[in-house]
């Protein structure tokens, strides 16, 4: 008989080994007795279920429903337009521009932020590094900084007229004339991506640091006995062992970066000339822009649904590759 212990005490006891996938059927007690046995646990779940239903499930279902109406957000939605909103979204050049920008945010987060954060995590995971907690704190601070404040601070720093960055670059003779970081259609998006990377870096770093804790020390010791140097340990121990968690981190970073909103809204509001517009700011504009006579909630919902589906498709496209990597890592 095997018994699993956890902080909460004995949580599972079984005399049989876990069944293999596609193996023999395991006889479990009927549902009702099991529910009765743990009824108070389910009672504790009720508030969470209610809140989750009210604030996550219901808005999601409602947005799908409203997407089929020409609805301004007031009263019952009655003006059924079928797929009209979806057709308009899919045919709207500005939506695709915003989607492309959102996608670029994800590309930068995955291709630049993730490897860079891993590199820093490995460095900061070194027990011989003095002051590593201080470095971790410094790198994590931007995560807890308010985005609106971050936006204002960077706008001041990057100001082409008297901003510290431009003054420094000009003073050092690196540039002839100030760069209009947030005001030019060519530099505004890369600038925001840089700020987003800086702000989100700490959380990705924490993911990696947590992942690194899962690599057993014994394996490092064994590899050292086998004569592996630090580079070989990284190549043949650390990275393969991190692969399953790396896939989870990748999906988390992908989702987070694809939904960048507050930074763009606080700094450029999608401008200049929509060059930094991302899908969340696009949706926000149609739902809440104070300058339109009537908000287009139905259309905004349709844009949200399309965006959600596209995100899902991109995520699923990664699945075969990720599954392969996961199996390779797990093996």
């Amino acid at each position: 008989m095997t018994t699993t212990q956890s902080r909460g005490g004995t949580v599972a006891a079984s005399s049989a080994p876990p069944p293999a996938r596609g193996g023999t059927t395991v006889h479990r007690p009927p549902l009702l007795p099991r529910l009765r046995k743990h009824w108070w646990s389910y009672v504790f779940l009720i508030p969470m279920i209610l809140l989750f239903g009210a604030f996550t499930v219901w808005p999601m279902i409602a947005s799908w429903w409203y997407a089929f109406f020409d609805w301004d957000g007031v009263g019952a939605a009655t003006d059924w337009v079928g797929l009209g909103n979806f057709t308009e979204v899919l045919g709207n050049e500005m939506f695709w521009q915003a989607f492309w920008n959102s996608f670029l945010f994800s590309v930068v987060a995955i291709c630049v932020e993730m490897p860079l954060a891993l590199l820093f995590a490995i460095l900061l995971n070194n027990h011989r590094l003095r002051g590593r907690d201080l470095y971790r704190l410094a790198l994590f601070l931007p995560v807890v900084a308010t985005t609106a404040v971050v936006g204002i601070v960077f706008a001041v720093l990057f100001d082409p007229a008297g901003g510290v960055v431009n003054d420094t670059l000009t003073g050092l003779g690196l540039i002839d004339r100030p760069i209009n970081f947030l005001g030019s259609t060519t530099t505004a998006l890369p600038t925001l991506m840089g700020i987003d990377l800086w702000k989100g870096f700490g959380i990705t770093l924490i993911y990696w640091l947590a992942a690194l804790q899962t690599v057993p020390k014994e394996i490092y010791e064994a590899s050292r006995i086998d004569g592996a140097n630090s580079g070989q340990q990284l190549r043949y121990v650390t990275l393969p062992m991190l692969t399953p968690i790396a896939i989870v981190i990748l999906l988390l970073v992908f989702q987070r970066s694809l939904n960048t909103f507050d930074l763009v809204q606080a700094t450029t509001q999608g401008g200049p000339v929509r060059s930094t517009d991302v899908v969340p700011t696009y949706i926000y504009r149609y739902a809440f822009d104070p300058f339109i006579q009537a908000p287009r909630y139905g259309f905004a919902c349709a844009a949200g649904v399309v965006f959600g589906l596209l995100t899902l498709v991109i995520t699923l496209m990664q699945a075969p590759l990720l599954r392969h990597r996961y199996k390779a890592g797990a093996a």
Partner: peptide, 18 residues
Amino acid sequence: DVMMPGWESWDGSRAFTE
């Protein structure tokens, strides 16, 4: 390059501040 640079991302209060 006659106009003050950065106006492309100014809010309504920036002009009077400058």
